[in-house]
Design a binder for these strands. Sequence first.
DNA 1: TCCTCGATATACTCAGACAAATAGAGCCGC
DNA 2: GCGGCTCTATTTGTCTGAGTATATCGAGGA
Lengths: 255, 255
Amino acid sequence: MAVSGRSEGPDARARRKSLRLHGMVARDLGILIVSGRYKPGDLLDGEIEASDRLNVSRTAYREAVRILAAKGLVEVRPKIGTRISPREKWHLLDPDVLSWIFKYEPDEDLLESLFELRKIVEPAAAELAAKRRSADQVERMREALETMAEHTLASEIGRVADQDFHTALLEATANPFLVSLTSSVAAAVAWTTIFKQRRQPLQRDPIPDHRRVYEAIADADPSAARQAMADLVDMALLDTTMAPKGKPGKRSRAA
Amino acid sequence: MAVSGRSEGPDARARRKSLRLHGMVARDLGILIVSGRYKPGDLLDGEIEASDRLNVSRTAYREAVRILAAKGLVEVRPKIGTRISPREKWHLLDPDVLSWIFKYEPDEDLLESLFELRKIVEPAAAELAAKRRSADQVERMREALETMAEHTLASEIGRVADQDFHTALLEATANPFLVSLTSSVAAAVAWTTIFKQRRQPLQRDPIPDHRRVYEAIADADPSAARQAMADLVDMALLDTTMAPKGKPGKRSRAA
DNA sequence: TCCTCGATATACTCAGACAAATAGAGCCGC
DNA sequence: GCGGCTCTATTTGTCTGAGTATATCGAGGA
């Protein structure tokens, strides 16, 4: 099929992943929205015009819009059209929305807010895990920790082990909402960390921090687990923000 | 168009809300999934068969599936079909998913987990609000509190004022993720509370609890705000669980 | 035993037509 | 002049059927 003369056709967009066409359109539009290129209240073009401009069928465009609507980014009504929703309606903790925010436009203030949330939730999760963990979960954490120590976080194996460690910890909380919340956030943070570390490889050794968390949970010591995890999150924050060395001060927070 | 002889047509389903056809199908399927009628790993019928059985077009069915996929409930791949995702992949904090879970199948263990999350997040949010609130936000909380006191939570006006109170509080945290998370959870909890209160109207007066939260935030006293909000959440938990009076004991938590 | 490759079933994309819903203009009655 | 009603035009919603792309599964060969 001949790609018409308009900007870039579907082929040019197929470069990334194994997303289907509607998935690509949703991702592209989603990034435009969360990055502020389209602003809340803006009205998108009609389906025919919009799909035509993207060189996709109306079907594919509509499915993309459904995805965005399911994530709270847009609101679409008959006779009105597709309107960008106010930011309060966005599902900011949706994994895709998080990835669109942090994979392409790592806003510093937002990153700080995300770590503020981590600092609230993850120590509490570690505390619960210390109370409820089973012997099997402790064993899985121990194995993951060993693998992490052997290979480092520089290798794929090491990063998978790191994920296993945190997955086992979350499962130990026996709270599905904590699992869902924390794994979404952790994935988003992982991307920004990898992004930053391209310029400045990780200098600190993360193993001791993890080991202290592990030992507290293995010992069934909730308050120690809370403290150890709080330290771990603090260290992780440093890993993502210390890249621009000259700016140790905190940014002001807009109202 | 004649509705064929199969179970119920779109007309019968149009009873609820102003959802479009694809929205209704998504909701119906979503409820079937979160309620366990379809289990993780199950493979749904092919598009043609499934849409035929629901008496809708493939287009409408596909858009519904896109919505469910966007919320992590299903995974759909060419040549394979539509498969129910494992529960760890569900976006449990998505407002729609939460509503499907709690509006039709209020699982007691899950409700307890949700309040566990509230108990972690909301006191911390109140603490942040006490540190960062603006004069305007305090004023809005005061007005909402007055309206709540005048009309009770039994009236629509009172419930809206309650929402305004918590919205202003969340805005004061200046953390968009906390806003998104807490408002989703609060909405879900509100439904279950209303559901329960049909049988047993609220006996406790919620105003004093709210007033203590307000005063702590107005006084810029973070630790008092944290404590007051913790008490408020505890009270809210009692409101939802005390309906079956004879069972004060805690349920065991499955592994 | 493993790899390559082709057949096949399924979702994906497209195009065009018709239906439904509603914002907004225009009309009517007061 | 103004509030409320109807009517229309425009946009999204739904349907159909055809053709394409993709990944599994099985057959054949190294």
